[in-house]
Amino acid sequence: MTENPRFDQLLAQGLEASRDNRTDAALELFAQASAAAPGSGVPHFLMGSEHASAGDIQAAELAFANAVLLAPEFHLARYQLGLLQFSSDRAAVALITWQPLFSLPESDPLRHFVSGFAALAQDRFQEALHHYRAGLQRNDDNPAVSADIGKVIAAVEQLMQPPAAGQPAAAASHVLLSGYSKGMH
């Protein structure tokens, strides 16, 4: 918690509204928290998460970008911003957004996850899987990110399977893989 009790209260109320699936109330409370502590990236990150959950990717990207602008060392916000960009067929932009994460310590799961996406953007599937699995082994803090990466691993493994006779090649069916083939080649 911060030294600003009003900010903390607004965040707590916003998180409660989010858990109760009251998106509009959560967004309003996070906006109020942002006004109470304009230099904090946390409310913007939470707004980005709400928008992403509601399917408003453009608003989510803007909110995550604001979080990163206000708090460049907020690694999870940077990761989520890049993930939205990657899954929106903008792998090159995501790799630029993620650039600072490539320099994180070897022990940081985000370093491995972004390295996995970088490999995926170049169709280096085995390398991508290696990084995703290494990141999962190091990720004790964020089960939601681990669950998403688990889905990415399954999708990459599916892409690597040879098609059965008379069947078309496996397509990237997961949203996180939708932009990889248009990435950097």
Rank of each mutant, 00 (worst) to 15 (best):
A144V: 13
V145A: 12
L129K: 03
A155L: 09
A92H: 05
Y132W: 15
G135P: 03
D89L: 12
I153K: 05
S146W: 00
N142R: 13
Y132G: 01
L129E: 10
N139V: 02
I149T: 02
A128S: 03
Y79H: 10
L110T: 04
Y132F: 15
F117K: 00
P100R: 06
Q137I: 07
D140E: 15
I153H: 00
A128I: 02
L81T: 05
D148N: 13
F86A: 15
L81H: 05
R133K: 15
Q126H: 14
A91Y: 03
V152C: 07
R111H: 10
F113L: 01
S115P: 04
A144P: 09
V114G: 02
H112E: 09
S107A: 14
L110H: 05
E127L: 12
A91C: 15
A91M: 09
L81D: 01
S103F: 12
K151Y: 10
D123P: 09
I153E: 05
A121M: 04
S107I: 09
R138I: 05
H131K: 05
R111G: 07
R133G: 09
F102D: 06
G116Y: 00
S103Q: 14
E127P: 07
F117N: 03
I153P: 06
A144Q: 14
F125T: 14
A134D: 14
A119M: 05
W98H: 00
R124S: 08
V156A: 08
